[in-house]
């Protein structure tokens, strides 16, 4: 890991965090049942070469800071740490035959559309469902919490894909 990559990731951390708490926090659909948390994309899209241990710690920090902004201490922290742990498992399924290029970051460009979805959706889904289930805190609200998690996953996914197409450019050409 070069120093440049770490600096870039630190910058991304702040950007994702502030865009989340200042903008996406206010964005809800269907009477607040569907929320978007694109900040998880930061954790999902960390470089392949990042060590599992550091991903866990970064996820803990990210969740903790988001929690302070959301006044929901612990909830995002738990979900983010869970995401970070599952990420290492999911990376094994989606690894190409030669293994990952460790200095690369996951992009549609690099992985292809299908693999990218397989890589991203389970992580976001697990994070969102955990989040809504902890927040509901009551068994009678669980089915609703799961539904909210699933619907919010779609909303977050749309934004994550939009970020890919806008900032990690020129997707179509590479794939063909």
């Amino acid at each position: 890991m070069g120093r440049e990559i770490w600096l870039k990731q630190a910058g991304l951390f702040l950007i994702y965090l502030f865009v989340q708490v200042l903008f996406f926090r206010n964005l809800t659909f269907f009477d607040g049942n569907v929320m978007v948390f694109p900040y998880v994309a930061f954790l999902v899209l960390l470089p392949f070469g990042a060590m599992n241990m550091s991903i866990l710690l970064v996820a803990f920090c990210m969740g903790f800071v988001v929690d302070i902004f959301y006044d929901s201490i612990g909830i995002h922290t738990a979900s983010c740490v869970f995401l970070a742990f599952t990420r290492t498992q999911i990376m094994k399924w989606t690894a190409p035959t030669g293994g990952y290029e460790l200095s690369e970051i996951p992009t549609i460009n690099q992985m292809g559309f299908g693999t990218f979805l397989v890589f991203v959706i389970p992580q976001i889904l697990l994070h969102h469902i955990t989040l809504f289930m902890i927040e509901a805190g009551n068994m009678s609200f669980m089915p609703k919490a799961i539904l909210r998690g699933v619907l919010s996953t779609f909303a977050t996914l749309v934004i994550v894909l939009a970020i890919q197409y806008l900032f990690y450019g020129n997707v179509g050409r590479r794939r063909l």
């Binding site: 866990l56 710690l57 803990f60 969740g63 929690d67 201490i73 612990g74 909830i75 922290t77 738990a78 740490v81 869970f82 902890i134």
Partner: peptide
């Protein structure tokens, strides 16, 4: 880390 988060909650 999950235990820490659980304790916080």
């Amino acid at each position: 880390l999950e235990l820490v988060a659980a304790a916080l909650i």
